[in-house]
């Protein structure tokens, strides 16, 4: 009895610091965002008194559905491209001998650690009218001399894939590293084509990694703000740009909150789905182990 109380005390002692910190500085602020979305703005850039539906109602304005739609398609395309590049890469890396595998892993990790702004800036330089890529494409007569590679949705997509790809490769690789490649050999011996072996043995084998990669790319992509801000233009704005504009330019915090609420809901949907899928798999695995 006494030991169980002591155990309880120890549990609270190691749990409370981080729990309290996150409740105050993460949960509470998120609730405040939801509350302020129902507040009117005051003309001094602050928050007015009373409660109102009008801030949320103003999101019906035809501009917003277009931006929300664009945010969704850019994020989806980014995620699909990252998975399409990340899966074959992980497949290749996981089969290398350990020494070379470390080298390749390091080559993926370095961009992952490199300053986010620096990597975006590097692309701005490359895509600039005087930049290397523009000049090469003009020399090859692939683009017009006055076509702009920057400030459009294509540039945003390219830089998003560039930025988020390491976040897709690393979890997929972590799963592929544990994958038993002899299973593929076995399937091949039994007559499966290499594509069939890849699709029905490898992909299901690394699905946890794919799920993590999906969440690690899709969710941050939904909230992208710096990339469309630096390499995008007025026709490639995403919801993140609008939140920043309402906060810093118009100083309309209730409006920015309402947009954040929309973004939070957009993020929660894939997150909950992902967590539920993982939990179901876990339960499945546990039942399996217990011979049920």
């Amino acid at each position: 009895m006494k030991t169980s109380r002591r155990r309880r005390y120890t549990e609270w002692l190691v749990t409370l610091p981080s729990l309290a910190w996150l409740v105050v500085l993460f949960v509470l602020p998120t609730l405040i965002v939801f509350a302020i979305a129902f507040k009117p703005a005051n003309p001094y850039g602050g928050i007015g008194a009373g409660w109102t539906w009008s801030t949320l109602a103003s999101l019906g304005n035809p501009n917003y559905p277009a931006i929300i739609w664009r945010t969704l398609w850019i994020s989806t395309t980014t995620t699909v491209l990252c998975l399409l590049l990340g899966i074959p890469m992980a497949y290749f890396m996981a089969q290398l001998p350990p020494r070379r595998r470390q080298v390749f892993l390091l080559l993926v990790i370095i961009p992952f650690w490199t300053s986010f702004l620096v990597r975006i800036f590097a692309w701005k330089v490359l895509l600039h009218p005087d930049g290397l890529i523009k000049q090469a494409l003009v020399a090859l007569h692939l683009v017009d001399a006055d076509a702009s590679l920057l400030y459009n949705a294509g540039a945003v997509l390219l830089v998003m894939v560039y930025t988020y790809l390491p976040f897709a490769v690393l979890p997929i690789y972590a799963a592929a590293e544990k994958f038993e490649f002899a299973l593929i050999e076995a399937a091949r011996d039994l007559g499966a084509s290499s594509w069939k072996a890849f699709r029905s043995i490898f992909l299901p084998g690394i699905r946890r990694g794919i799920l993590t990669a999906f969440l690690m790319v899709f969710i941050p992509a939904l909230g992208a703000y710096v990339i469309p801000d630096i390499v995008g233009g007025p026709h490639s704005e995403m919801i993140g740009n609008k939140i920043a504009q309402r906060t810093f330019v118009d100083r309309n915090l209730p409006h920015a909150s309402a947009l954040s609420v929309i973004l939070t809901l957009a993020v929660l949907a894939p997150l909950t789905a992902g967590m539920l899928m993982q939990r179901k798999k876990d339960r499945h695995a546990v039942l399996h182990q217990e011979g049920l």
């Binding site: 302020i36 969440l215 703000y225 939140i243 915090l253 973004l263």
Partner: peptide, 13 residues
């Protein structure tokens, strides 16, 4: 997994 912008916005508020 929460996008940075949401965390920034909520902390600002």
């Amino acid at each position: 997994v929460v996008p940075d912008i949401l965390m920034g916005m909520s902390l600002l508020l």
